[in-house]
Each structure stands twice: as C-alpha cells, then as structure tokens.
C-alpha cells in the first residue's frame, strides 16, 4: 500500500504532461480548449492531493469555469474551417524545441541541489483541523490584506479594460 501515493501521482503527472502536449498541438482551437479543461481538472485534483482544497476549488471555478469559457467564446468567433487548413506551427519551431528543451533541462538540473528549508507552523494536521479555507483566510485578510486589495483593483482594471478594448468602435471618421 505504500506505493499508492506514488501511483496516484504517477497517473496524474503522466496525464497532465500528456494533456499539456495535446493542448498545444491540436490544430482545432476548440479541441485545445477542451483538453485544457480536462487538464485543469487534473491539476485541481493534484491540489487536493497536496492538501489545498480551497485552491483546488478556485482552480475549477475560476480557470475551468471562467477563463476557459472566455477562451471558448473567443474561439467561436473564429473561422474554424480556415483555421483547420492553415499551418499550426511557425517556421522556426525547431529552435523553440531546443530552447524549451534547454530550459527544461536547466530546471531539472537545479533540482539535484535542492534543500528543504525551515518548516513552517501550518502542519497538515492543523490545516485539517481548522480547515484549509479558514487558515488561508486568516492569512489573507491579515498579513496579505494590502496585496489582496491591490488584486481586487487589478480585477477592476481588467474588467474596465476588457470592455474598453473589446467595445465596437463607432465609426467617427
């Protein structure tokens, strides 16, 4: 039974990588969005696995529920037929393979020298006892109150900005 977490992780990890690749390689953007939806659910599950229920919920609600729907809307504006006939990659994609591969190797090589730092006070038991949402809320509204307010401001700007940008211009000239 000791192998169970590893097995579960292995499953999720494999699926996440696979889905990521599918997202970026599908010719049809609608398919990409669909695979991404599945990907976000898997990531949310992984968050649960890491004792972060609130984040998992946010992941589903915000990413899957809001952002992806937005993507879907935009994709539906496009002419899919034309899209399916066009090239999916730019001409310089082999360079991109090298660069992204290099960055992956770089990041992976860093891990060898990784050392775990000082342990914090939020043990798994504590979080399970108080619940994740409440502990997160306690930190968010005390220590991170100011950034929290800024985040709300960013969202406000995003709302206004999106409206201004996407609004159909009156032909004034």
């Amino acid at each position: 039974m000791t192998m169970l977490p590893q097995l579960i992780f292995g499953y999720f990890a494999a699926v996440i990588v696979l889905l990521s690749l599918l997202v970026i390689t599908r010719k049809n953007p609608v398919h990409s969005v669909m695979w991404m939806l599945l990907l976000f659910f898997h990531i949310a599950a992984m968050y649960l696995f890491l004792n972060a229920e609130f984040i998992a919920a946010i992941q589903v609600i915000v990413y899957a529920g809001a952002i992806l729907v937005l993507f879907l809307f935009v994709v539906l504006l496009l002419n899919l037929k034309e899209e399916l006939e066009a090239d999916r990659f730019v001409g310089s994609w082999p360079v991109a393979v090298l660069v992204s591969g290099g960055i992956f190797l770089g990041l992976a090589s860093v891990l060898r020298s990784f050392v775990i730092g000082r342990q914090g006070s939020f043990t798994v038991e504590l979080i399970q006892k108080v619940t994740h949402t409440k502990t997160l809320g306690l930190i968010m509204y005390t220590e991170y109150l100011f950034p929290f307010e800024i985040a709300s401001l960013i969202l406000l700007i995003a709302v206004i900005g999106a409206i201004v940008l996407a609004k159909k211009r009156m032909r004034s000239h």
Binding site: V90, S92, A96, V99, S100, G102, I103, G106, L107, V110
Partner: peptide, 22 residues
C-alpha cells in the same frame, strides 16, 4: 516584427542567464 522571434530571443536569454548561473 514577428512576435515569436522576440519571444524566442527572450527565452534564449532566460536560458543563457540560467545556464550561466548554474
């Protein structure tokens, strides 16, 4: 004027800096 080219150069820069630090 191609976005990808700029992005690629940026990523290369990231890679080079990271490699140098390592």
């Amino acid at each position: 004027g191609l976005l990808q080219h700029y992005a690629t150069i940026m990523a290369m820069g990231l890679f080079v800096i990271g490699a140098f630090m390592l």
